[in-house]
Computed example of a mutant assay.
Amino acid sequence: MMFATAPRRRLSFLAILTILSTFVLSGITTAAHADEIMDRVNSGKSIRIGFANEVPWAYPGENQKPLGFVNAITMGVLKSMGYTNIEPVVTDWGGLIPGLKANRFDVITGGMYIMKNRCDNVNFSEPIGVFGECFIVPKGNPKGLGSYDDIKTKNAVIVTGAGYSTIENAKRAGVPAGNIMTVPGNSEILAAIKAGRADAGGMTYFSALHLSRESGGTVEATDPSLNPEWTFNWVGVGFRKADTEFLAAFNTALKAYLGSDEMMKAVQEYGYGNSQLPGDVTTAYVCENR
């Protein structure tokens, strides 16, 4: 009896160990793959969205209220997902990706182009729009600068923002590094043009249009179609690499929201229209080709 009973007890003990080990390992796996955003939401904390002062893309209003069409789209999608506890965090443009990676916020808006080097650091949502680049130039465009090729052939100086895709695009077009000036953001770009320290200010068409209106007629925006097709870019909302579960849910909600009457009404005041809708282009494609 003793020999018959002992093996049965041993098997039962091993079975218990196996079951316990499975639960422990399962718990470890779940913890390792848990989204930080989901953890915050489930614990009753806010979703922190980071953005810079980039009119009309994303910028702070009174009490740092998130304004701009990228913020409008992002908050519209989050609301459709049932999330309304949103905390805006305003920073400089160059601090968006480092701040996201350092867990200072959970989502970055700001009108950030989806680019291969950025895709290595953050996960982007599916595109929320497609946009071209142009310049602000002194009224009348005295040097006739409409494209990166013009900048190169006329040995002009272009000023742009630190971290802007304009820097890499100018280099790709053959503009010498010595002809590319970088400043913190759009207000400094405008100041450089007004002071005559640069001949053209490189930025997105929406930003250039806004600055031309705010400048009192001292600068004007060039036609983005004068630049080559490869300068057109798609914008996405940025997430940490670990937050894959939340990103998947966001993309599902984005697909239903993008181009809807509700969305188009929310972004109309910022100048976003049907021509900015991204169509069928995917983030995977853009990460490989931009």
Rank of each mutant, 00 (worst) to 15 (best):
M1Y: 09
S12W: 03
S12Y: 09
F23P: 00
F23D: 06
S26F: 08
S26K: 00
S26A: 08
E36S: 14
M38C: 09
R48H: 04
E54R: 01
P56R: 11
A58S: 14
Y59I: 02
Y59D: 02
G61W: 13
G61D: 05
L67W: 04
V70E: 15
A72W: 04
G76E: 11
Y83C: 03
P88T: 11
W93N: 12
G94C: 04
G95D: 14
G95H: 07
L96V: 01
R104C: 03
F105L: 00
G111H: 08
G111Y: 08
M115R: 15
V122M: 05
G132M: 03
P142Y: 12
P142I: 08
K143C: 10
D150F: 03
K152W: 02
G161E: 14
A162G: 02
Y164E: 00
T166N: 10
E168I: 08
R172V: 08
G174R: 03
P176Y: 13
G178V: 04
V183E: 09
A191C: 12
G202I: 10
Y205G: 10
L209W: 04
L211Y: 11
S212Y: 07
S215P: 03
S215V: 00
G216Y: 10
G217K: 10
G217Y: 13
E220N: 00
T222W: 05
D223P: 00
P224L: 10
S225N: 10
N233V: 07
G236L: 11
V237M: 09
G238E: 11
K241I: 03
T244E: 07
A249G: 04
A253L: 13
G259V: 13
M263A: 00
M263H: 01
G273K: 13
S275Y: 11
V281Q: 09
V281D: 06
T282A: 04
A284W: 05
A284L: 03
Y285N: 10
